[in-house]
Design a protein around this nucleic acid. Structure first.
Lengths: 199, 199
DNA sequence: CACCAATGTAGTCAATGTCAACATTGCGCT
DNA sequence: AGCGCAATGTTGACATTGACTACATTGGTG
């Protein structure tokens, strides 16, 4: 091959495709994502991506999985670094979640639209559980510490998670009617803990 | 034209397209929606839909608008028919919202994905505000009745709405981990009101 | 070193959204 | 009543896309 030519094998096509796919996703939305376009940008033939992703859905699944892993990592870090008091932990986790939602609007929407291919679902479902698992853990700790009365921790955690998830998605869609996200999150936190602090 | 022929003009093509589009949407998701397929099902030529919807997005916008109108109607009816106590009203509205979300999963997702064309946005944005407006009204009444302490009713209403919206979308996505929706809604209601009942 | 699995290429096909040119119809205005 | 035009529908075309098949190149491994 001559000097300026590309080697026949790209070398890291899968990574490049995923990276460009993610930035295109955020910029143009899911509908703006085209396998052929990605191939062009990567400088490979139009069918090359098929060696790494069976079809378009497989690429989306990979994006979702990557997204969940990153989100999980961020949430766990926030959990660890926060003061160990349940209130501080939930606040840190909720804040991280909302930040992620605002930084990766389209990705989070994709993650929870979950048109997951029934085949590859296992891994993704696994990764998708972490946010709730963390929340359950916080509630359980709060109950152990006496900050929260008895009751199925799953139900209580679901209420908490749904609240912050709802705020995050509404914020990402610009439907907070001008209210600052942080204020809404803080208000939700206050209401939530006050509602749980008594039997 | 011979007896069995269709008249040249369909007569109610727009309505038929919208109706079939909605059922296809729920059955196959947004991606399963094709203008040409709809045209086939309606028995018209492939370009006929363009006389009623400039492009595919315009059809989706129309579905969203129709969806918001139906949701608004249902919520307002629930609001009126419920006992006038704020707690009963919020419960009725929340229940109606969740029911709608479960009955029209794909539609609700589309409604809040809001890739609204900046042009036609006004009408849809208008319709999209009603759920929050109703919630604000309930909170204001609750404050007037002394059931809820002072505070920006918008913020409080946002927390409530986000909570039920979050529960609804999680439930629609099958991410409640087996917990019955009604239980989660009830738990959220209890926590919410208890958290607000004191200064 | 020969072979083979992984990776990339070229060509093709059907489906789709969109546009332009043309056909048919019904309604309003004179 | 009837003329004319806007609304509605048809036909044909084109570019893009996802997906499939056959083939080419490469690098690692027995």
């Amino acid at each position: 091959m001559s000097a300026a030519e590309q080697p026949y094998h790209h070398g890291s096509l899968r990574q490049v495709l995923l990276a460009r796919a993610e930035s295109t996703l955020e910029q143009d939305g899911v509908d703006g994502l085209s396998l052929r376009q990605l191939a062009r940008e990567a400088g490979v033939s139009h069918a090359a991506p098929s060696k790494h992703f069976r079809d378009r859905q497989a690429l989306l699944d990979a994006l979702v999985e990557q997204g969940f892993h990153r989100l999980t990592k961020a949430l766990e870090q926030a959990f660890e670094e926060a003061d160990s008091h349940p209130r501080a932990r939930l606040g840190a986790v909720a804040g991280t979640y909302v930040t992620f939602a605002l930084t990766h609007r389209e990705l989070l929407a994709l993650m929870y639209s979950s048109k997951l291919a029934p085949g590859a679902a296992t891994e993704v479902v696994e990764a998708g559980r972490t946010p709730m698992d963390l929340t359950v853990r916080i509630i359980t700790e709060a109950q152990a510490a006496g900050d929260v009365g008895p009751g199925d921790p799953l139900h209580i955690a679901l209420v908490a998670f749904a609240t912050f998830h709802g705020i995050a998605t509404l914020a990402a869609g610009g439907m907070l009617y001008g209210a600052p996200v942080d204020d809404v999150v803080a208000a939700a936190s206050d209401t939530f803990w006050r509602g749980l602090s008594q039997g």
